[in-house]
Amino acid sequence: MIRKIAFNLFAWALVLAVAFPLFWMLVTSVKPQFELFRRPPTILPETWTFEHYIGLLKETNFLNYFWNSIILSTTTTLIVVAIATIGAYSLVRFKYRGRETLAFLVLFTYLLPSVVLILPLYLMLVQLGLSNTITSLVIAYTTFALPYALWLLRSFMAGIPEDLESAALVDGATRLGAFRDVILPQLLPGIISTALFTFILSWNEYLFALVLVNSDEARPLTTGVMNMLVSSFNIEWSLLMAASVMMSVPLIIVFAFLQSYLTRGFGAGGVKG
C-alpha cells in the first residue's frame, strides 16, 4: 500500500515537472506586470488580472494574425484531406502500374526536410506574384501536409475490410457509389484524425511563414507573435504568455474533446512496430 502511494507520488511529480512550463505560462499570463519582478516569485498570482488578454486583443495585431491562421489552417486542411482521401483510396484499393513506386514516393516526401524545398518554392511563388499572400502559404503547406495526410489515410484505409466493398459491388453499386456509401463512413474516424493532425501542423508551422510572408495582412500567428517579441523594446512577458495561451486555444479544445482521435493518428502514422 505504502509502495503504491509512493509510486503514485513519484509518477505525478514527474508528470507535473514536465507540465510545469505550461502551468507557468498560464500563471504568468494572469499576473500583473509588477508581480513578475517579485523576489521570490509568487507561485500563484497574488492579484489576478486579465488586462494582458484584453490588451492583446485591443492593442495588438493578435486578432488579425489569429484570423489569418484560422483561414490558412482550415483551407490547407480541407484541400489536403480531400485530395489525400481519394488518393489513399486509389493507392490501397486499385491496381495499376507505378502504384508501389508512388506509395514509396509519398513516404519519402513525408520525411523530406522543408529547408530543401523552401528556396525553389520561394522563387516560384515570387515569380507567380503570390508572395505575401495566404495563398502562397497554403501552397507551401501542402508540401508537408499532403504526404503526411496521405500516409496516415493510407494506413486507415488499409484497415477497412475489403469484403465490405466487395459486398456492395455484388449488390450492384458502382465503385464510386461503394466508396461513398461504404468506405467513407468507415473511414470517417481516420479522416477526422488526419484533419486534426493537418490542422495542428499548419497552425504551428513557422519556417514557410517566416520566409514567404512579410506583411501583417497575411502573417499567421507563429511569425506574428514572434514579431511581437522581437519588435518590442522592453519585453512584456505577461503579454507574450497571454498570446501563447490564446495561440494554444484550438489545441486545448482538441485535447479536451477529441483526444482519442489524436492518439489513434499516432498508431497509424507509421509507428506500427
Binding site: A11, M25, Y206, T222, V225, A243
Partner: peptide
C-alpha cells in the same frame, strides 16, 4: 497524466520557445 505529458508535443514551437525563454 497522459494528456499533460502529450501537450508539449502538440503545442506550437513558438509557444514552447516563448515559455522556455521566460
Amino acid at each position: 497524466a497522459r494528456s499533460l505529458i502529450l501537450f508539449p508535443y502538440f503545442v506550437s514551437t513558438v509557444v514552447a520557445v516563448l515559455v522556455w525563454k521566460w
